[in-house]
Design a protein around this nucleic acid. Structure first.
Lengths: 110, 110
DNA sequence: TGCACATGCCAAGAAAAGCTAGCAGGTGTC
DNA sequence: GACACCTGCTAGCTTTTCTTGGCATGTGCA
C-alpha cells in the first residue's frame, strides 16, 4: 500500500501530517509508546487538543490505539506509530493523482 | 536537503501538497511543462485559482517558473516541477520534528 | 469523602485556507 | 477598432481547521 497509494489515501496522509503538533506526536511515539495524558504533558498541550490530533492520526492509519489496564486498575489508552513509508516524488504523485476523487462521489471512505 | 529536511521545511512541503488541486498540478507538470492559461484549461479550474496554487507550490520550492516569449511575441509563464524527493516514515519525521520552530521565533524564513 | 489521575465528549470562538468575481495590463490578427 | 489570447492583482465571502474550556465518567488511595 505504501508502494502505490491511491490519490485519496495520499491526500489524507499529507493533510494529516501537515501539522506541527501531529509531527511531534509521531516523533514522540516513534521513540516510545505512551498514553494520552502523559503525552499531553510531555508535549505541553491540552489533553483535549491532543485527543483530537490523535483521532486524526488514527483515522489516517498512522497510529494505532490500545486500551490497557495499569497494574492498579486504571484504564489507559496507549498509542503507537504504524510503520508507514511514503515516497514523495513528482513521479509518485503523478501516479497517484489520477485516482483522486472528483469531489462528487466518495462519502464512506474516510 | 531531501535527505534530512528541517521540521519547518517538511511541514511546508506537506502543507503545500495536502491539496487535490496542487497534487494534480504536480502530476500535470511532471508529464510536461506548460503555461498558466493552458494548465488552467486542462485542469478545469479558473486561472485565478490556479495562480494561487502555483504561487504556493513555488513558495515551497516544488515548482519553478520561467517567463518566456512565444514566437508571436506573447509573454507566457512556463512552470515545471522541481525534482524533489522526500521520505515519509516515522523515523524521518522523528529526525525532523526537533527542528520545528516553537511558534514564537521565525519570521523571515518563509 | 476528598483528592489525584485516567478516560471521553462537545459547544463555540478564533484562525487559516480556499475560492470567486472583477479589475488591471500587454501583444497580435481580422 | 474589436476580438482573442497572454499575464497579474486583490477585496471579500465561504468553508475548513484549530483550540480552548467546561463537564461527565471511572479507578485507587489516604
Amino acid at each position: 500500500m505504501s508502494a502505490e497509494p491511491t490519490g485519496d489515501e495520499l491526500l489524507t496522509v499529507l493533510g494529516t501530517l501537515a501539522n506541527p503538533h501531529r509531527l511531534r506526536v509521531i516523533a514522540a511515539l516513534t521513540r516510545e509508546r505512551t498514553y494520552v495524558s502523559r503525552l499531553a504533558r510531555d508535549l505541553g498541550i491540552s489533553r483535549a487538543l491532543l485527543q483530537l490530533h490523535l483521532r486524526k492520526l488514527e483515522a489516517a492509519g498512522l497510529v494505532t490505539a490500545r486500551l490497557e489496564l495499569s497494574p492498579d486498575g486504571k484504564a489507559m489508552k496507549f498509542y503507537e506509530v504504524t510503520p508507514f513509508a511514503y515516497r514523495l516524488t513528482p513521479q509518485a504523485i503523478a501516479a497517484a493523482a489520477p485516482t483522486l476523487s472528483t469531489d462528487d462521489a466518495e462519502k464512506g471512505t474516510r
